[in-house]
Design a protein around this nucleic acid. Structure first.
Lengths: 245, 245
DNA sequence: CGGTGGATTGAGGTAGATCAACATGCGTGG
DNA sequence: CCACGCATGTTGATCTACCTCAATCCACCG
C-alpha cells in the first residue's frame, strides 16, 4: 500500500508550487508535483514522463483505457467524430490538465497534441488504487472533474445558443483566461490550433471563423499576428460581444 | 468522524438494491441507499428528504452552494441562460442522478423539476467531510462525474455537428436508453418536458422540434401519444437517422 | 363546455454553409 | 539565402436548413 499522506497538506507544506516539479517539470499544481519528494513511491515508480511531438495521438475513441495522463507542457485537443467525418472538438487542454480518466473500459474520444508536449502517464489500475488509498487525491480529482463539467456546460451554451461572433469572442476570452491561469503568455495570445480546429470547437466552418476573425480585426477589437496568435485590443467590447461566456 | 466502511462493499453485502431505500425510497443504487441501515449516522442525521412539486426550483445560477442533492424520483432539468433569455438545457436528470456538486462557492446553472419529484438533500460541508473520510464514496462520485462528462461530450457533438433530425433522433434514443437503465417505462416513453424544453436541449426552436417529430411520425418511425409520450416504432431506422449518438 | 397555454402548420427571411477562386506563409531543397 | 510548392487561410457568390413571424389547432383544466 502507498502512503496515505494528504495531497493538499503536502502541497501546501511545499509552498513552492511555482518551481518546476522534479518529476515532470510542470509549473502548475497537479498530481505529478504532489508526488515530488518520493512520498508516493509506488506511483512514482510507475509514472512515465512522455515527450510528445506535434500532432501526436495519445489515444483514440474505442481504445482500451490503459493510462491516465497529466499534461505538463503543450496543448492537447480532445475530440469526437461522427461516422461521416464530422468532428466536434470538446476542448483544448493546457498544462496541468488531466486526461484519459474514463468510467468505462474504452476511450470515448480522441486525444491529440497540437504542439510538442510533455505529459506524465500513469497505469490506470495503479492510479485507481492510489485514489482508493487517498481520499484527498480522489476529492481533488473530483473537483477537477466538476470544473471540467462546468466548462462543458459553458461549451454547450456556446454550441447550442450563441451566434458565430459570440462563439469566436467567447472562445478567445476563454482561451486567454485559461492560459492566464496557467501563467502562459496572454498578450499576444498563442493560437496553437488551426482555423479548422477552431471551427470544430465552435461548431462553425473555417470560412465563418476566418470571416468573423476578419471582422473583429477590422473593428479593431483584436490584432492578428500571423495566423497563430492574437492580441486582444478591446477587452470590454469583446466581452460584450461574447454574450457573457 | 463517520465510519469508513466501504460504500461498494456495503451495497454489495446488502444485495437487495431493487428494494426501496428506507431513507429515501429510491430503487436505484445511490448514496442514500448506501446510507440505509444507520451506518453513516452523521450524514443520515443531516440528510433531508425533499418532496417537490412540478416546476419547482432547486437552485439558480449564482446561488451559494449549500446543498448536494440525490434525485430519487421524478425528472429535473439543468439549464444555463444568457442575459437576453436564450436558454440552453444541459440535461434532464433521472432518478439516481446527483446534482448540485460544484467546485466553486456558487451554482453555475439552474435546476428545476419537470414533474413532481423526491430528492435527498445533504449539507455541503458535511457531504464533503464524508467524502474525505470515504475514498470509496469519493471514487464512486468521481465515476459518476466522469459519466456526466461523457454525456456532456455526446451532447456537445449533438449541438455542434448534428442536423435537426439527428438531434431529435439522438435525444429520443438517449432518453429511452437512460430511462431503461433506471427501470422506467420505455414503451411508450414519457416525455415530461415541453417542446420548448426539447428545443432548448437540442439547440433548435419549438417549431423545428414539432416539424421533425411530425416528419418522424408520418415516416412511421415513432407514434406520438398526446404531446408527452412517444412509442418508438422503428428502432434501427431511428438509430441510423441519429448519426450514431 | 369554453378558455387558455402548449403544439402544429404555413410563408417567408436570414445566418451561416457551401462552392469556388485566390492569397499567404512556411518548410524544403537547391 | 532564396525560390518553389503546398498547406493553410482569406475572400467572394450563392444556396439552404433552420429561424422568425403569424395563424390556427388541440388537449387539458376548471
Amino acid at each position: 500500500m502507498t502512503s496515505t499522506a494528504s495531497l493538499h497538506e503536502f502541497c501546501a507544506r511545499r509552498g513552492d508550487l511555482a518551481a518546476p516539479c522534479r518529476l515532470c517539470g510542470a509549473r502548475e499544481f497537479n498530481l505529478c508535483q504532489a508526488l515530488d519528494g518520493g512520498q508516493q513511491v509506488k506511483l512514482f515508480a510507475l509514472a512515465h514522463r512522455l515527450q510528445l511531438g506535434k500532432r501526436c495521438r495519445l489515444f483514440s475513441a474505442g481504445d482500451p483505457v490503459r493510462y491516465v495522463y497529466n499534461l505538463t507542457e503543450g496543448t492537447v485537443c480532445l475530440s469526437r467524430s461522427l461516422a461521416d467525418g464530422r468532428r466536434q472538438i470538446l476542448g483544448f487542454l493546457l498544462p496541468g490538465d488531466f486526461l484519459g480518466f474514463e468510467p468505462g473500459e474504452t476511450h470515448r474520444c480522441d486525444a491529440e497534441t497540437l504542439t510538442e508536449a510533455k505529459a506524465c502517464r500513469f497505469e490506470r489500475p495503479v492510479f485507481e488504487e492510489f485514489l482508493q488509498d487517498n481520499a484527498d487525491a480522489a476529492l481533488h480529482l473530483l473537483r477537477l472533474a466538476s470544473t471540467d463539467l462546468a466548462q462543458a456546460a459553458r461549451h454547450e451554451v456556446l454550441l447550442g445558443r450563441k451566434t458565430a461572433t459570440e462563439r469566436i469572442a467567447s472562445f478567445l476570452l476563454d482561451l486567454r483566461q485559461r492560459s492566464g491561469a496557467r501563467h502562459l503568455r496572454t498578450q499576444p495570445l498563442a493560437l496553437p490550433m488551426t482555423r479548422s480546429e477552431i471551427a470544430d470547437y465552435t461548431g462553425l466552418t473555417i470560412e465563418t471563423v476566418s470571416r468573423v476573425l476578419g471582422r473583429l480585426r477590422s473593428g479593431k477589437l483584436i490584432e492578428l499576428i500571423g495566423a497563430s496568435a492574437v492580441r486582444i485590443l478591446d477587452d470590454s467590447e469583446l466581452e460584450r460581444l461574447s454574450g457573457s461566456a
